[in-house]
Design a binder for these strands. Structure first.
Lengths: 231, 231
DNA sequence: CAGTTGAATGTGATATTGTCACTGAAGCAA
DNA sequence: TTGCTTCAGTGACAATATCACATTCAACTG
């Protein structure tokens, strides 16, 4: 990577390493100068497949990536999203254990990322505690979110989960732009199930649905439901 | 901790830090000398509750601990087991982010562990890359297992999951000593559901059930089922 | 040993969720 | 407009979950 290109992304690096200005600054800067490559990726591109091994490691600068896992039967569920300033814990996990990916990563929007080859990153891990701490933090947050997901999927009612999801995804016009199909994937169920759930919500007057769009009407009721206060 | 007590557990420490004999050996040994306390814990003791903050960190030497999370409705699911030579990623996660536990930890057998206060461990993390790498490995393995669990819970049929579980837990007499209730907790469903599933397995001649014990008869059939080859 | 007690398991009725095989509707492009 | 393609709706049925009990077994008590 050229020095100029690094300078262009040096601000972005700070979002990964807020402690960048310390003793190890030089090591890390030099590392990225030597090994990092700035890549741009279109929408709906597979970054990695189920069964791939991990060869390049991405530091996401722009866009979002969804990480999905699928069963043998074809049903899928969204494990988490990677946002700017984050990395993929799965990549980390695979890198450290030299395993295959147990999931698929797909860009949801056009993305920019810093890409570094895994072997060099492993060497860096042995030298810099800051990098280590960065990865620890990353893991730490994601473990918590994965456990939350397990609770939801294994123990919560579907209507509760749908309500939560809608509230989480609504914009400031109280709208969610998503197809039933996509919502089903995120929640880990089938489209028909979502369709029916939304229809009963609509019958209750809680939401209004259009093609590809859901408008939340009775936000408070949905909030109550999302916290399990309802039958 | 006295030097003698440390010597008693220094072999155990090696199972955590196989690279113990290197440059940082002195730092880590000294750390455990200064801060670690050997604790013995009875069976069925809660190490931490949902909502606790993390004050002591355990390195498990003997016994097993199950980590369970519960919904508001009271249903529970087993997230993972901690075995000797392991630590609790949840503790790590809570320690690093200064969060509350999203789950419960209960000893399944009498346990021995090294206990260290969290603040001191955080300081050690800033000095030793070996400790960092240890935690990274730990996280890394657990993330993979959590993702597997999500796949199972969200996407797999119940009979497949029960079959897998039985195969995993059987001893070399092809027996599993467990109550339906406990099995239900591990799989994240209700006892009645497990009872019915086992009964149909038994009708098919795949297993024989006694009170508190299940004997697997047609192992191959169960293996096929566990891999999803069956309807 | 019989009797009691508590844990473990069985069962039917019903509600929720998932699957399958379709039909219909809305938007887009030629 | 016509023909696509994507998105959504529907009924029938299967699988799983929940509830409210009844039953059985094993261990303990006296």
């Amino acid at each position: 990577m050229t020095s100029k290109a690094l300078n262009n992304t040096i601000d972005s690096l700070n979002q990964f390493f807020p402690v960048f200005q310390q003793e190890q600054q030089h090591i890390i800067q030099q590392y990225f100068l030597d090994h990092a490559r700035l890549v741009e990726i279109d929408k709906d591109i597979n970054l990695f497949h189920q069964g791939d091994s991990c060869e390049n490691y991405y530091f996401l600068l722009q866009g979002t990536v969804k990480v999905i896992t699928a069963s043998s039967q074809g049903r899928e569920i969204l494990l988490y999203r990677i946002k700017p300033g984050e990395t993929c814990v799965l990549s980390t996990s695979c890198m450290i254990n030299d395993r295959y990916y147990p999931a698929v990563g797909v860009t949801e929007t056009p993305c920019k990322a810093l890409s570094v080859p895994v072997p060099s990153l492993i060497k860096l891990l042995e030298r810099s505690t800051i990098i280590n701490q960065f990865f620890l933090h990353n893991f730490s947050l994601r473990v918590a979110s994965l456990i939350d997901l397990i609770c939801e999927v294994a123990l919560e009612r579907l209507d509760v989960r749908v309500a939560r999801h809608l509230l989480q995804k609504m914009d400031n016009q109280h709208e969610v732009s998503i197809t039933h199909d996509a919502l089903a994937l995120e929640i880990g169920t089938a489209r028909e199930v979502i369709s029916r759930q939304l229809r009963t919500f609509e019958k209750n007057g809680w939401i209004v649905t259009k093609r590809g769009k859901i408008t939340l009407i009775q936000i408070d009721t949905l909030k109550q439901l999302s916290q399990g206060y309802f039958s």
